[in-house]
Design a protein around this nucleic acid. Structure first.
Lengths: 263, 263
DNA sequence: GACATATGTCCACATGGCGGACGTTTAGAT
DNA sequence: ATCTAAACGTCCGCCATGTGGACATATGTC
């Protein structure tokens, strides 16, 4: 079953050399998103069996992938974490943001996140909460850019071209509340840009919602965003939402200014 | 300057195929540990310049590495985080451990960690604190197995062969208090095995110390460990240390038992 | 401004990887 | 139990691909 649209993740421009290397990395990324058996991957990536198999073996042997011996399912291995996690250890902006995030996390009932864009997804670099944790609000869960306040903030601050092509790819629906209509999405993004923050409820998971605001560096580029995730019921109360937004904007602006940004 | 001992990280058995792929991954891992310029990497890995350069370009283009345009220094890119972080998102043992870790983190003055072994290093999968954070006690900082209570717990529970060859490689000194003498290390590890926990002070950073205890799965294998990191002054007080150890062992045993382990 | 060091690019050669084809194991149906 | 198909594992001859020495350009140091 070869998919007509190869809308899989961030694909490379066709004509890169080092084929083997690129293939291996593509496999890694594919597995990160859809874990599965050798065939599933072979079909998903449309690779010849023998070739894919060789690659998988190699990656597994190196600890970059791991294979469940019972199900033969492949998933990302510990060595990828070993390497990947160093990215956040010396992330300059995050380092500066940390104290502000810590402070914000004292607010009851929310999970505070520091989120960056990677390809067509938002990735959580840091996540902190004081009370009860919220499902899928930890690091390691990635969502497409059109969903969640964090995604929308990042998307809204991208170039018009990027937004256009992103929306053209046909955004997926995660819940019945996920915005996918191109027209509505454009409107929402315009709104987010104007407000300087985003609020979404139940578009990622039915029981939660979030608010997010961008972080700018000295040159005015959007480098990341701060997001507060809360239970739906909590966020729906007008007074709660207002209070959160106040803290949010305080936090995001403080971080931006520490990065050298001026209004 | 070609290092006589290529004691760099986890090296592959010499005769693996897919040379290019392995080289690329080796480069990634090398950069994760020693970020630097192209030449530094070329020398460190003893690779021909042209070859290394091609690999770097490719990895950078894909977002697996990033290059600081001012210093020409390479470091791990966001895409590695994107992929690597999914490892913790569906880590069965960590998922089970989480509530216990959350509970333990309510203890004042400590950072709670869930730590796994990866090659010759201990990697922090999860880190949580309630009060002031402690430097380098977040995820993304990796330390060799002979240092820190977490490393020692993991090392002590490894096979004799592994321990032997690890120590033979000549453990490095991080502070003046780091245990590196083979004899003393062996003794300490035996002690750790007997006690069922480890305590180290100022052997990683001069101002901090930690306690750690292993986590076992249903088959009795050591799959990870829990570690509490605290300031040196705090940990040195007898009564604090005792209280911590009590909570620690309660936490680690509870997790082990949730994984199906029985004493 | 000259020298040294680091980065970038090229290209002929042959080696390492490709993938079709064929065994082997596992799973699931009858 | 027996059969069948699907998934997994391996082999090998051909040739595209990547290799790395050498040369060219950029950066920076005295």
């Amino acid at each position: 079953m070869t998919k007509p649209k190869s809308s899989e993740g961030t694909s490379f421009g066709a004509s890169t050399p080092l084929k083997g290397v690129n293939r291996a990395l593509q496999v890694l990324e594919y597995v990160a998103v859809h874990k599965g058996r050798a065939i599933d991957i072979s079909e998903g990536l449309d690779l010849p069996w023998a070739t894919l198999h060789r690659t998988l073996q190699q990656l597994e042997q190196g600890g970059f992938l791991q294979k469940n011996p019972d199900t033969n399912q492949y998933s990302v291995g510990s060595r990828m974490w070993f390497i990947g996690s160093t990215y956040v250890a010396d992330h300059a902006a995050l380092e500066i943001a940390r104290p502000y995030l810590e402070r914000a996390a004292k607010t009851k009932g929310i999970t505070v996140q520091f989120v960056e864009q990677s390809g067509n997804q938002s990735t959580v670099l840091f996540s902190l909460h004081s009370g009860e944790p919220i499902t899928k609000a930890a690091t390691g869960y990635h969502f497409p850019l059109h969903v969640g306040s964090k995604g929308q903030v990042l998307l809204a601050n991208s170039s018009d071209d990027f937004i256009e092509s992103y929306i053209a790819e046909g955004p997926s629906k995660l819940t019945k509340n996920t915005l996918t209509d191109p027209e509505e999405l454009h409107q929402k993004l315009a709104q987010v840009r104007e407000d300087g923050y985003a609020v979404t409820i139940a578009d990622v998971q039915l029981f939660s919602g979030s608010v997010a605001a961008p972080i700018f560096d000295a040159k005015g580029n959007t480098v990341a965003c701060v997001s507060f995730v809360a239970r739906k019921s909590f966020l729906q109360k007008e007074e709660n939402q207002e209070a959160l937004l106040e803290t949010l904007l305080d936090t995001s602006q403080s971080i931006s200014m520490s990065l050298g940004w001026r209004p």
